[in-house]
Write a protein that binds this DNA or RNA. Structure first.
Lengths: 131, 131
DNA sequence: TCTTGACCCTATAGAGGCTATAGGGTGCAT
DNA sequence: ATGCACCCTATAGCCTCTATAGGGTCAAGA
């Protein structure tokens, strides 16, 4: 399949796919006589993996090491597991922060409804150094 | 406090602080006779807020607008109200996204039966197109 | 057969948000 | 007075894409 089809299937911009190839994160595809990239189902799976990992908030470097871990059949679980675990901690912290911010924002709305502008404490809500 | 101390306290690079000042998102500090920036606790809270917000995925423009809400002079209620409402929608969407992501990550963890080496399905799971 | 239009190619530049480097001043301890 | 860690400005570069310019390829239709 050509790059456009791969792009559609993985919901990725064509330019981004070429960028991934330049970065060496997606293996180069075979070329047709007309020098078109010709992708295989393996590329599709790998790119899907990359995109999904990026969506889940892993950095390029992390995706790289996830891919490396995937190649090594011996101990993939421990490494991948550890990365996911660490990531979950971050996500939980973010959800907590956003919930705080949300509360302050809706407080602001209520203050407004009661005709008196309340003090906005959004900075106070998130302005404290983390415990 | 000087810029280095502020940097340490907020886990921010000195260069980044100066960048925020140039961008007008963090107010300029007073200067000492030697032209050193001299920061107050107010700067500390504001910068902490900025960093947290950025970490939560708000763009610079969004952080700017959140900070505008915090200017507690009597602004026209309607404007503040509309802005706060908009941000709440945004925050709710972020919370929903992260909650989903959290579920997926913990699903990933479950897919890893670490007792059985070589049977890790995390990698497979990431390579599947999204249902 | 010739043209049109959707695709493909490379190379390069730009955006957003930092981060690093060069070249130099400040201030305190030894 | 000499180090050394810190501060200053100005400018260039990095990361992850995304867009643009300038140009080939190919199937379908006039």
């Amino acid at each position: 399949m050509f790059i456009g089809e791969l792009a559609k299937k993985t919901n990725t911009k064509v330019e981004t796919i070429r960028y991934y190839e330049r970065e060496g994160i997606l293996p180069a595809a075979d070329r047709t006589d007309a020098n078109y990239r010709d992708y295989s189902p393996v590329h599709l799976a790998k790119l899907t993996f990359i995109r999904r990992s990026r969506d889940l908030g892993f950095s390029m470097a992390q995706v790289r090491s996830l891919l490396d871990l995937a190649v090594d059949d011996d101990q993939p679980c421990a490494g991948v597991d550890a990365m996911a675990r660490e990531h979950i901690i971050n996500v939980d912290r973010k959800i907590a922060d956003l919930t705080l911010l949300r509360a302050e924002l809706s407080h602001l709305l209520n203050a407004c409804d009661s005709e008196r502008i309340g003090k906005c404490r959004i900075v106070e809500a998130l302005g404290e150094p983390r415990r």
